[in-house]
Amino acid sequence: MAEKRITIRTTRFDPDKDKVPRLQSYDIPFSDDSMVVLDALNHIKAHVDGSLSYRWSCRMGICGSCGMMVNGVPKLTCSAFMRDYWPRSITVEPLQNFPIVRDLVIDMEDFMHKLKSIKPWIIRKQEYPLGAGEHRQTMDQIDEFRQFSECINCMLCYAACPVYGLNNEFLGPAATALARRYNLDSRDQGLKDRLPVLANSEGVWECSFVGECSVVCPKGVDPAKAIQQTKLDTTTRFVLPYGNREE
């Protein structure tokens, strides 16, 4: 039987030579049904063109570094099975809405900055001395935020968000989900530190609820829910007399 083959088109962009990115086609063997799009890129890099650049690390949907547009949809390429596309060709492009550094590699500086701005760590008004032991939590208290702590910072939600695409100042889905993750944590007391970033005009109110972030999220984080909950939260805090209570 003739060997199964598949056409992969990938974005190529060399900042030293190219003015604009272009697409290049590769015809490669599709030898095994368990192949994912990342395997195809690795095949191209190993056997066809060693200069193809892209990010990846874990190959198991954990590290969040292999996000790219696969046939126009943001995907973790290590979890996108080629059998779901074959015999159609597959077009791999860098994550939408981000500047392109080279080939499939995007500049994630903006996301890193946003992530840092919501202070994604446990803030205490006063740290316990180490000897005082751990902060205890019940299962119910963990369940409050567990979903939002599943985020792997893959940025697929930013690539899916047209609001972010039109206005890069928007805080965006994952950063809000992570802010919520810490605000809901019974050990955290940092709400007041995060509110200015969440409630300002480029914060949650910029969101017009397209909802695509939650559709593409590979971890079921549901950032759209985090954003709408934060809208409700900041409003009640503003409107209700006890809303500004210390927590």
Binding site: V20, P21, Q96, P99, I100, V101, D107, P162
Partner: peptide
């Protein structure tokens, strides 16, 4: 440097 390409919507 580094030069980046900024795609537009």
């Amino acid at each position: 440097t580094p030069r980046v390409y900024k795609p537009e919507m």
